[in-house]
């Protein structure tokens, strides 16, 4: 475990906590895409299929449980908690899950390291995670009215991806045989999707203004 990996995991954890804070204490999910959150549930459920069969460390297992539990509870809140559900921008959040999932399923069946059930599911989760933020970014663009917590949530998620890239670079130079093209390319694509958002986030931060995306 290097410092970049730890920083990435902690940023990821912080992003989930910010979102739970918004939903749990303010009882609002305004500006949050349920589609993206449901895609994350699928991402974690397909990636952590090995949670009971392969053990790396207590840290890893605990984090897997946290990410599974938090993503399920966020979706539960947005769907079934009356007060939270009322604040959901249902009409704006229209991205189709299958539009993202189907290409990822096909790609995972075609491009993978090993053709086994667990390996294809794991690869699918990488491809899906890369694009899972898209419904959220589309929703932001549509609502244009971005509150601080939602902005921070996406900023932290993007930060998590950035730290993972630094982690891969570090590991590539310090560990022999550390080469994972599928992970790297899908991770890079995922991080690039945040570039536009980051640009406007920093602009609003620099000018000390409320974050607004251009139409």
């Amino acid at each position: 475990m290097n410092i970049f990996r730890l920083a990435g995991d902690m940023t990821h954890l912080a992003s989930v906590l910010v979102l739970l804070l918004k939903i749990h204490t303010i009882k609002s999910c305004a500006g949050v895409s349920l589609k993206t959150q449901e895609l994350y549930v699928i991402v974690f459920a397909t990636r952590y299929l090995d949670i009971f069969t392969s053990f790396v460390s207590i840290y890893n297992s605990l984090m897997k449980l946290i990410f599974l539990g938090s993503s399920f509870s966020i979706v539960w809140y947005m769907r079934y908690h009356k007060a939270v559900h009322r604040t959901y921008d249902r009409e704006q959040d229209t991205f189709r899950h299958w539009f993202l999932m189907l290409p990822c399923i096909l790609l995972a069946l075609l491009i993978h390291e090993k053709f086994t059930f667990f390996e294809v599911m794991w690869t699918f989760s990488l491809y899906l995670e890369a694009v899972a933020i898209l419904p959220q970014l589309v929703l932001l663009q549509r609502t244009r009215n971005i509150d601080n917590l939602t902005g921070q949530y996406i900023f932290l998620l993007g930060g998590y991806r950035g730290f993972y890239i630094l982690n891969w670079i570090y590991r590539y130079f310090t560990e022999p045989h550390y080469v994972h093209w599928i992970t790297w390319i899908s991770g890079l694509v995922q991080t690039l999707l945040y570039a536009d958002f980051f640009y406007y986030y920093f602009l609003s931060w620099k000018n000390n203004k409320k974050l607004q995306l251009p139409a």
Partner: peptide
């Protein structure tokens, strides 16, 4: 086998 192939990332 490649040891670093193990999935130790989240």
């Amino acid at each position: 086998p490649n040891k670093s192939y193990e999935k130790d990332e989240l």
